[in-house]
């Protein structure tokens, strides 16, 4: 038996245990066995990767950007979910608001998710800036921001802060909310509750999570692991439950240009490499 690669992941739901036990079983007996370690937040996980406690980190996009910053760009992304290559931020308001686009937010209040959520906080501010809008709390700027930091440390993985942002819209504490497309899907888009919410702007697609490794990890150990990962098959009944729980149909090689907008946002907003 080869020495297993140790994968780090953040435990944002009890299903993370099921997912990674399933992954460990899938790799068992193959050329690149693996085990896993769970962390309570991404800061701790990135620290562990840099300290060599784990070989590979299952990172959010923000954790990737911070790892790049702390390694001077030496780290590498190994793979990601197909859904990670086409992630989006969705701006929604109450149905009938007719905001018409980001410029419609001028003079209004936008609810954001946790401060470390790329999809629900960091990138939305970036998109406002690209649209020529300034933003801030307590009425500062063109768009007033209502920040809801419900799940800091998890980089928005729980979706809790995005749901709270939507609650703020329903309860008229905000005019609009920014959320990840996965949360928008989870509430049934505007199809399940017609008359509740409407989308007034969708971001371009960008990259979300990836498996991150340091350059010190030997390619002879990484390559067979990545090859076996990419071979997981949605049509295989043994693989499918894990893929469904993790929210993908196919593991793919990383789409690195999809992180450009987040690198820009982090620089613009002066977000520190460590949280």
């Amino acid at each position: 038996m080869s020495t297993p690669l140790i994968i780090g992941s953040v435990a944002y739901t009890p299903n993370v245990v099921t997912i990674w036990e399933g992954m460990r079983d899938y790799f068992a007996g193959g050329p690149a066995e693996m085990d896993f370690v769970l962390y309570s937040n991404y800061g701790r996980q990135v620290d562990a990767l840099l300290a060599g406690h784990i070989d590979i980190a299952w990172n959010t996009n923000l954790a990737w950007v911070r790892t790049v910053a702390q390694t001077g760009g030496e780290c590498r992304a190994l793979a990601q979910r197909d859904t990670d290559t086409v992630f989006q931020t969705i701006f929604v308001a109450r149905a009938g608001s007719a905001l018409g686009g980001l410029e419609g937010l001028k003079g209004r209040r936008l609810a954001l998710g946790s401060q470390d959520s790329a999809q629900a906080a960091i990138l939305p501010v970036h998109y406002l800036r690209q649209a020529g809008l300034t933003s801030g709390g307590d009425g500062g700027g063109d768009v007033e921001l209502l920040r809801i930091n419900s799940d800091v440390g998890k980089h928005g993985d729980t979706g809790r802060s995005e749901l709270d942002a939507l609650r703020a819209v329903v309860e008229d504490r905000a005019d609009a909310a920014a959320l990840g497309v996965n949360t928008w899907e989870a509430i049934g888009r505007d199809e399940l509750m017609p008359g509740a919410f409407e989308v007034f702007w969708e971001s371009p697609t960008y990259s979300h999570c990836n498996f991150t490794a340091l350059p010190t990890l030997d390619d002879e150990r990484v390559a067979p692991w990545v090859a076996q990962l990419l071979a997981m098959d949605f049509d295989n009944p043994a693989h499918r439950p894990i893929l469904e729980m993790e929210g993908l149909r196919q593991w793919v090689l990383p789409k690195l240009d999809g992180y450009a907008s987040l690198f820009e946002a982090v620089e613009e907003q002066g977000i520190s490499p460590r949280w």
Partner: peptide, 22 residues
Amino acid sequence: MVNPLLVLDLVERTGALPVGGT
């Protein structure tokens, strides 16, 4: 119209469950 908070609660409560939990 139904209360949209109902679906938000559903997403949040089931999201915190292990598969099979109620």
